[in-house]
Design a protein around this nucleic acid. Structure first.
Lengths: 110, 110
DNA sequence: TAACAACATTGCAATAATACGATTAATCAT
DNA sequence: ATGATTAATCGTATTATTGCAATGTTGTTA
């Protein structure tokens, strides 16, 4: 039905899924990498840098902003986006706990 | 259009997006956590464990299998799934490189 | 104030994802 | 062989996502 049954899963599981979902599009990965690379707030160059239309970029930025991973400062007529470091660290904790699950050696099969 | 323009992004960016996408649903997160927790191949208990119908679970398992993150061994009438450790480690490298991007202290704003 | 610049929003078309009933395929038990 | 069990696949309804043209909003500049 296109609608995930989030209510039957734990908060942690839904949180991991939410973070992952936002990373699940290469444009958003590219935006974040660009923001990291510049290590400073950048503004409208994202549209030129990534080959997507302005409304599309704006939409991706909004999703990143909704999760709190980026912040936007209005600077005159342009808006300056950058990584929210606290939130990024917080997200990283959650994701690492998931990715770093112990792989015990003696599994029964496979 | 519902169709991501993957061709304008790098292989690495698309790879990160692919891994993230598969983690972008709580059911698949739950399946993986259960597989890790049991540290042994389990079969149809996933249907009982997670509250989704059998075809739905089977569909999620297929997506995980397509990415290579899990393996399935046929054991009689049931199928035994477990984490593919090599592939998991490989995936972890890629994801960590993305998550661990340097957050330099002296950013210009925000 | 009027024109402009930079983004955000809206609306829409096209495709993808989610979920499950029904069915099929394979194996086991008798 | 027959029936039961397990899981994969098919078909389909429903919702979500992606992308962009058109338009709106806000602040700047002449």
């Amino acid at each position: 039905m296109g609608l995930a049954k989030t209510e039957i899963f734990s908060n942690k599981q839904n949180q991991i899924a939410s973070y992952s979902k936002v990373f699940g599009h290469p444009a958003r990965v590219a935006i974040l990498e660009y923001l990291f690379d510049k290590n400073a707030c950048i503004c409208g160059d994202l549209v030129d840098e990534i080959g997507l239309a302005q409304p599309t970029i704006s939409q991706h930025l909004r999703e990143l902003k909704q999760l709190g991973l980026i912040k936007g400062n209005v600077e005159g007529t342009s808006v300056c986006y950058c990584i929210d470091k606290e939130k990024w660290t917080e997200m990283k904790q959650v994701m690492l706990a998931f990715l770093d699950q112990d792989i015990v050696a003696d599994s029964k099969c496979c």
